[in-house]
């Protein structure tokens, strides 16, 4: 951008025809209302509530940092943090590698590729309730599909959901069923990899791995970064499987952060504590996203760098 250059006559005319500021605000007003009502107000309101004790029926009572202090000395809260981070560490790398690899295998002309893609995407469209129920039976100690298959090769499977050493792993395995969402994004990303570079590299004698690391991955780096961020943000908010399948148990081994937040809000009716938890999560996510972007900045390649907004 050239900064404050004099607008040309043509530009000035267009600006006049396009109308001035009031019309702009009228047109974006739905979003402004939404932003204030659904983001700004809840966020600031919850910051206030997080410093109070509030049981909905009575007025909030200011308690300062008490909610935060209580949380950080609480066994379950700390455990929910550990469980959530552990779950992210287990699922995100596997999920990313597996869905990228599958997308690369699926890319290009393959017979029945439309059907195959749909198969991979299918788990993402099953209602979370049906999926949760399905998997709780798949992991069943006695009749479950997994343990039946394991018994075929003479291994006695663990009590997946009833044993605190295995429950989180079980939910992590289940999450791999949903890699289809990532595959769709990676498939789209693979279309943007410049083919002429591949041809040139191939002619120059570069092998498949070499091309993967010097062409495919670098040109997909913005998408990889985007996926990493989405996965982290999504992973830290994992809720459904813990809520529907294990209800946080056994022994809080699947008490995800979001699940504990939900329980504080809607079961124990501790509004102040729930709001404090929301804010802590918000800060964790912001800090992590910032770190990821900072660290990855030199590694991400944008084809049109400096594409400024007008």
């Amino acid at each position: 951008m050239k900064g404050k250059a004099m607008p040309t006559l043509k530009k000035r005319l267009r600006r006049r025809r396009l109308g001035g500021t009031p019309r702009f605000f009228l047109w974006i007003s739905p979003w402004v209302i939404g932003f204030v009502l659904l983001t700004l107000l809840p966020l600031l309101g919850s910051l206030y509530v997080s410093f109070t004790e509030w049981k909905i029926v009575s007025d909030p009572v200011w308690v300062g940092l008490a909610n935060y202090k209580e949380l950080f000395t609480e066994e379950i809260f700390l455990k929910s943090l550990r469980v959530t981070f552990l779950y992210c560490a287990m699922t995100i790398p596997v999920n990313m590698v597996l869905s990228l690899a599958t997308a690369m295998l699926l890319n290009g002309d393959l017979p029945y590729s439309g059907i195959l893609r749909t198969i991979y995407y299918m788990p993402c469209v099953v209602s979370s309730v049906a999926a949760a129920l399905l998997w709780s039976y798949i992991f069943n100690y006695r009749f479950g599909l997994i343990n039946q298959l394991l018994s075929l090769i003479g291994v006695e499977g663990p009590n997946w959901l009833g044993d605190e050493r295995w429950s989180l792993a079980a939910l992590a395995i289940m999450s791999l069923w949903g890699i289809g969402g990532g595959i769709v994004i990676y498939l789209a990303g693979l279309q943007t990899v410049p083919q002429h570079l591949h041809e040139a590299a191939r002619l120059a004698g570069a092998g498949w791995w070499r091309r993967l690391f010097t062409i495919t991955l670098p040109s997909m780096s913005p998408i990889l970064l985007f996926q990493l961020l989405t996965n982290i943000i999504g992973g830290l908010q994992t809720f459904t499987s813990g809520y529907l399948i294990t209800d946080g148990g056994p022994n809080n081994s699947t008490m995800f952060y979001a699940l504990y937040l939900y329980k504080n809000a809607f079961q124990y009716h501790k509004m102040g504590k729930a709001c404090a938890m929301a804010w802590i999560l918000f800060i964790i996510i912001m800090v992590l996203s910032f770190l990821v972007m900072k660290v990855s900045a030199p590694m991400v390649y944008y084809e049109n760098d400096g594409g400024e907004d007008d």
Partner: peptide, 19 residues
């Protein structure tokens, strides 16, 4: 817009409920 886009749903869900 970008900030709203990155706003985690879990963080706003409960405060929205209060609103």
């Amino acid at each position: 817009l970008l900030i709203t886009m990155m706003m985690p749903g879990t963080v706003t869900f409960f405060p929205q409920f209060i609103v």
